[in-house]
Amino acid sequence: MRRFFGNLTPSAWIGFVILVAIVAVAVFGPLLAPHPLDEPIGVPLTRPTEGAPFGTDFLGRDVLSRTLWGGRSVLGLAGIATVLAYAGGMAVGLAAGYSRSLLDPLLMRVSDVMLSFPALLFLLVLVTGAGSSKTVLVIGVALVQMPLVARIVRAATLEQSVRGFVEAAVARGERATAVVRREIVPNILGSVTADIGLRFTYSIILVASVNFLGLGLQPPDADWALIISENRAGLTLNPYVILVPAALIAMFTISVNVVGDAVARNLGISTARRRLVR
């Protein structure tokens, strides 16, 4: 862990604190919510009152409660999708970058074809064809991201695979899996994690977009993107119903990126930095 979080800059610390806070809101929010997510408590779209600090939504439900409920799906679905995208992308990228055979062009051309589809179009076709379920949504988002991850992993792998220590491992007859696992993977983690924030952000946007279009989660589920979508007509009557979930999504994506960058920096320069400090 020290390798990942050894030296954090002040901005990285702030990002880290915000990230932890928002994850806590998403995970524990439903336990703290004063009302169930689909219980009308007053006049629709009223501004904040004593009982409802962020007012009510277009059906008169408590915005605070729905926001507290709505984080799990955003973070959970985007998180799982990102992990799946990385699992697949790492496998494809490492295989393509290290093989030096026909496998490389084969895998990369397939990736290119996948990249040439507009992401949202791909998702909409998938959701329309396979039905709108959380599983389809997650797999779809992962598939959209996978070629991007694969390209970065492949480029980093190519760069490492010509270095002396990789050749030394090949010369002493290590198996390909051992070379990749011991010599290459630890050295590409830096450049790969630099990108993880961006990928996660993109996953959130994709999940939110599909939900916003009403093809992902279905009402009365609460979801930050869905809340924004449902209430967009009421922006002038009660702006909080849009602003609060929007701010949470924004803060979350920014903090993920700040922390991702900091971790990548630590992975990249940790040894050099430690030497200077010493």
């Binding site: 270095r163 002396g164 220590f165 011991r182 010599e183 630890p186 050295n187």
Partner: peptide, 12 residues
């Protein structure tokens, strides 16, 4: 190899 920075894995 020529360059010891290259021939040793920085993570080992």
């Amino acid at each position: 190899f020529q360059n010891p920075n290259e021939s040793l894995n920085p993570r080992h």
